[in-house]
Design a protein around this nucleic acid. Structure first.
Lengths: 323, 323
DNA sequence: CCGACGAGTGACAACGATTGCAAAGTCCGC
DNA sequence: GCGGACTTTGCAATCGTTGTCACTCGTCGG
């Protein structure tokens, strides 16, 4: 290729990278030759030499989940704009696979990593890591939703409707969002002066699956002193709860009110339309990616960012809807 | 690292790759040293040398869409198992961005590409390409749903209910699935002996968005001779149609029956639960990846694979449900 | 005892780009 | 016409691995 333009490899390289060290006419000649030959500089060779791969690894529990897909998209967007390529890996919620994924990424010499950890993280990694949604308590560089504020918003809304017997269907303990949301719920209960009731505290399985929430809600529905309202800690959990309540012959919101932390897709078409917090998944990915870019640029890392959430009021909480 | 084990680089390399050319004791010593140093062989250097990057590019219109996210997951799964790493790129439904993505992947010297084309494809690429869902008519190596069979299934089911005025809300013309589903619909209409009615043929926008289907369905609802049944060519379109029908004060399925090509998430919780074809997204990704692996293994390419679809009967078609 | 042989190892040259440094070319003023 | 300054170019080394080739040992058959 350099030969085709009648210059040395060095000059061709400089020309293609718009180095000011190369003459105007040469630059044009090189570009012309490159175009004619359909030449694309080999990024692998460049990476080897420059010790920077222009690639970033993103590790999530499951790419096919709406939340992670959207977060990935947010991240991919800003990373691509910055000239990085994204390597995706699924940890499948297994620390072992997460560790394997991390090793693979390191082997590929990614410049940085975005990680929603399932517990497989063990420092120190050789590249900057930004945690998103599922944080490592010890690490810095973290982006997550404002779990406490969000949960408080949900709780207070229900309390505003006069509910005092409020139950909670949470995620699987051990992840940032599950733990923080639960803690926030318990805090709100205490602040409201309600007696803490462990039978009103339930949680889903590892995958925060609909089925697990269905079981949890069925148990709540069977309680002697049934709760009058339920807070589900995620969209899938809310859908599971809804299904269980319906199966138990309970009307929502007349018999039991229901609110969800995450807004399910088509939430407004469900029966009844669900009151929920605004989605934040995409933004989490964007912010995490931006933070990583800043770290890569050598900036001192801002320890933690929280994404604020808003309440979207629909019918399932007992509000009249559309308003 | 080689030094730490007291061997040459060549030997270390051979040892780590389990070459039979290296002595048992040396192999152990090398592994020990590698473990102690947390050494991971540099895949970039290896790629440069072996001219194979162990990476595959996957280009989709939008990673955050349920369909593409699931297809990506399917692909990622089988590729990772085969030792490949996946580079994801979003084409955002723009041929220009697709071309840019393809160039970037080539620059990174991926071993192969999985492409859902939006029209930016221009042969010949330097690596094997397998098309999925959005096929290039000229290229070989293709995986897609059985659009014709699926659409026929839907149509015949409605006809079995006695419908004769069946309308169609399709995707945006120009993509494989949009075109094939429309053609299959028209074919079925003709075979049934119904008069072709262009006012019963509508389509969504580029993104197959809910909003566009809402507009299309609103127009259908306003027709003097309103259709008694509607087939939506995708999940999002079906949801849009449902929303429009509801806004028009029409009951589903009593006033207008509705069936969907793709099964929406939570389809069973919608009001009414939607009759639809089984999802095939994940499988599309898996099959495409498998086909690519076969191509990479040097096998002669099987030109085209179609994923069969099943009908999931719920209430929106007029069946009694649960059965 | 010698040569052939095989196993195990190291030296060395790539892979294709980048980069510091030196050399060549250009231009100016004196 | 010459030295100095500046611009443009090429040379050669380098990034970490892999594949080729040659070399060193034992071992074994003749």
């Amino acid at each position: 290729m350099a030969a085709a333009a009648g210059v040395s490899a060095s000059t061709a390289s400089r020309a293609l990278r718009e180095s000011p060290l190369v003459g105007e006419s040469t630059r044009l000649r090189v570009f012309e030759a490159a175009r004619a030959l359909g030449f694309e500089p080999n990024r692998i060779a460049r990476s080897l030499r420059t010790r920077s791969s222009s690639s970033v690894g993103v590790v999530v529990p499951d790419v096919a989940t709406v939340f992670w897909a959207a977060a990935l998209k947010g991240a991919q967007d800003v990373l691509e704009r910055a000239g990085y390529v994204v390597l995706v890996m699924s940890s499948e919620r297994e620390p072992k696979r997460e560790r394997a994924a991390l090793r693979t990424l390191i082997a590929h010499r990614v410049d940085g990593i975005l990680l929603a950890t399932t517990g497989g993280y063990e420092p120190p990694p050789s590249v900057p890591v930004v945690f998103f949604d599922r944080l490592d308590p010890a690490a810095s560089g973290r982006v997550a939703p404002a779990n406490v504020e969000g949960m408080t918003l949900l709780f207070e809304h229900l309390r505003g409707h006069g509910h005092t017997r409020i139950a909670f269907v949470g995620g699987h303990p051990g992840s940032t969002s599950a733990d923080e949301r639960l803690a926030a719920f318990e805090g709100a209960v205490a602040r409201a002066g309600f007696p803490p009731r462990s039978d009103y505290l339930r949680h889903g399985d590892e995958a925060w699956s609909e089925a697990s929430a269905e079981r949890a809600a069925a148990a709540l529905a069977a309680l002697h002193e049934r709760p009058t309202a339920i807070i589900a800690a995620s969209d899938a959990l809310a859908v599971g709860v809804l299904r269980a309540l319906r199966a138990a012959g309970l009307r929502v919101p007349e018999d039991v009110a229901l609110v969800s932390f995450d807004d399910p897709v088509f939430a407004d078409l469900l029966d009844p339309p669900l009151t929920a917090l605004s989605r934040h998944d995409r933004e989490i990915g964007e912010l995490a990616a931006s933070m990583l870019l800043r770290l890569l640029a050598g900036e001192r890392e801002p320890a933690e960012v929280r994404v604020p959430l808003e309440l979207i009021v629909r019918r399932s909480c007992g509000c009249d809807g559309r308003g």
